[in-house]
């Protein structure tokens, strides 16, 4: 028996294990989504709920759920952003509308994107939005303010234990879209776009 060959064998096998482990680290990215959405029932996709489901809604007037609103702005975005109400009490199954206000305090037009999140995460699958400013990019000119609506309902199937849930938004600067926007504005006015960066 030849020790050198056997060492090479260990080296190769271990090399395969190391490569698989490295790939596994990356595989955790899709796995995380699958586990969240299909095993733990956490809704990650922030998209709008199908309108046909709204039509068949039955309001559960015997139950109230408090929905709280939390807003934040990423430090790279010179905006202010607040909910008009800090919380509302709703009956599950009832379509509700609330408003948020954003102001661009900077000297340039900026594109922002809001990223929503629901706590507790078990409730995320039962919180449905039919309309939200977070579905699209928001453009605010320098100094501009905007009132933005969110229409949502809480699914009557929401587990009984959940009496309170929190909807939070963080606004981030959408840098790519902002650069595109300022390029467009400058071609319209005829002045050259500012150097990037």
């Amino acid at each position: 028996m030849n020790a050198g060959n056997r060492n090479l064998g260990v080296l190769k096998t271990a090399g395969v294990v190391v490569a698989c482990a490295f790939l596994f680290g990356f595989a955790m990215v899709p796995l995380y989504r699958v586990v969240c959405e299909h095993v733990l029932g956490i809704k990650l996709a922030p998209g709008a709920v199908d309108r046909s489901r709204v039509a068949g809604l039955v309001e559960d007037a015997g139950r109230t759920v408090r929905v709280q609103f939390v807003t934040g702005v990423n430090s790279k975005l010179p905006w202010s952003f607040t909910p008009e109400l800090s919380s509302v009490e709703v009956h599950p199954g009832k379509l509700t509308e609330v408003w948020f206000d954003a102001t661009n305090n900077g000297g340039e037009a900026i594109v922002g994107n809001a990223v929503p999140s629901i706590a507790p995460s078990e409730a995320s699958a039962f919180f449905n939005k039919t309309e939200c400013f977070c579905f699209t990019e928001q453009v605010l000119q320098a100094g501009e303010s905007r009132r933005m609506p969110v229409r949502f309902y809480v699914d009557p199937q929401l587990p009984r234990a959940v009496r309170e849930l929190t909807l939070s938004y963080t606004f981030y600067a959408n840098e790519a879209a902002t650069v595109r926007l300022s390029a467009e504005q400058h071609t319209k006015t005829g002045s050259p776009p500012p150097a990037a960066g």
Binding site: V18, F24, G25
Partner: peptide, 14 residues
Amino acid sequence: LIAVMPVLAGAVTM
């Protein structure tokens, strides 16, 4: 070590 150090390498690569 061979099972988890590569996972750390992946995490910091990301």
